[in-house]
């Protein structure tokens, strides 16, 4: 092991930070670290916190982490915010809600931009999660971007997905049920001191009762994260879900599935980079002009490109 790896294994925060930088830039160095230390991973329990923008995901995460460090756990947090597709820049503001955790020796928090990755996570999330696992975290929290209807990648990476909602969604629950609502293993109605929280809880329960095909019926928990209310109950539900996963053998299934994804994603990313590199080398713009001028059609051009890159037909 080199110095960085030794420090990482000991949970040194600077080492974790640097390793995650490698991960989010998709540098080979990150892969080298994981290749060497893979055997040390697998003990962290991964909790996804997701839900629409503004429902209180960061505040809730803050309270959950506080609760779990009091029980003596080491915790890593990855908080993801959107990257502007136009400038490539981003403002990552989730730390604002977790200020007091910054100085706690057993907590590491990292903000990440999506950097063009769709699905509610960033491209480096898989590797960053593994790095936190290697660094000895008992729990890793992944807070997704504010989700709409299709940002469901969190389900591929988390052991337990907590879907956070707030009162006032009303009929919107109906509208979004087909998309993100299917991935929640625990539902939280946060800001439950607001008007309409009981109605939201009832609607959620009604909706969840419709699906009797699953052997885990997602519970609905009311919280007021800002006042630390309902947090104990939510923690109990997370533990209960974990127990269920272990007892049913589904945790193993989930994690095997995740490994499969991790491998495929890595190959896909490598392939994509290759493709983009090669496309830049080719005179793409020149050919594009021919498409614009209707000398050739876009699909013939795509076929040609594919043939050039992989030396075989699409």
């Amino acid at each position: 092991m080199n110095n960085l790896e030794e420090l990482l294994v000991r949970g040194d925060k600077r080492a974790i930070a640097r390793a995650i930088t490698y991960a989010e830039n998709y540098e080979e160095k990150a892969k080298e670290i994981i290749k060497k230390l893979y055997k040390r991973s697998g003990s962290a329990y991964i909790i996804g916190i997701t839900g629409p923008p503004g429902v209180g995901k960061s505040t809730l995460t803050d309270k959950l982490v506080k609760n779990l460090i009091e029980k003596g756990n080491k915790i890593g947090v990855i908080a993801i915010d959107p990257t502007s597709p136009f400038t490539g820049g981003s403002i990552l503001g989730d730390r604002i809600r977790m200020q007091d955790l910054s100085l706690h020796p057993n907590v590491y928090i990292r903000s990440m931009g999506t950097r063009g990755h769709l699905g509610g996570l960033s491209k480096g999330t898989y590797m960053a999660t593994r790095i936190l696992d290697i660094a000895g975290m008992d729990y890793v929290f992944i807070e997704t971007v504010g989700v709409g209807q299709s940002e469901i990648d969190i389900v591929k990476i988390a052991d337990t997905v907590v879907m956070v909602l707030a009162p006032g969604l009303g009929d919107d629950v109906q509208a979004i049920k087909a998309g993100i609502m299917e991935i929640g293993e625990i539902f939280v109605v946060n800001k439950s001191d607001r008007e309409g929280s009981d109605k939201t809880v009832v609607e959620l329960n009604m909706m969840l009762d419709l699906d009797d095909t699953k052997d885990w019926r997602p519970p609905v928990v009311k919280t007021i994260a800002y006042e630390n209310k309902g947090i104990n109950e939510l923690i109990d539900k997370i533990f209960a879900h974990r127990e269920y996963l272990i007892a049913s053998g589904n945790l193993e299934k989930k994690r095997n599935q995740r490994l499969r994804m991790e491998i495929i994603e890595t190959v896909k990313n490598k392939l994509m980079n290759n493709v983009f590199e090669k496309i830049q080398q080719k005179d793409f713009d020149f050919k594009l002009q021919e498409v614009i001028d209707k000398k050739i059609d876009p699909y013939t051009f795509a076929d040609e490109l594919y043939r050039d890159i992989f030396n075989k037909n699409l």
Partner: peptide, 25 residues
């Protein structure tokens, strides 16, 4: 300008700022 900005909010102690700078690399 295409940068990733981590904004930590008001009233930070020097210790908090340094810790955030380290964790966020």
């Amino acid at each position: 300008a295409g940068m990733e900005v981590i904004y930590t909010g008001l009233r930070q102690t020097p210790e908090q700022i340094v810790e955030a700078a380290i964790q966020e690399d």
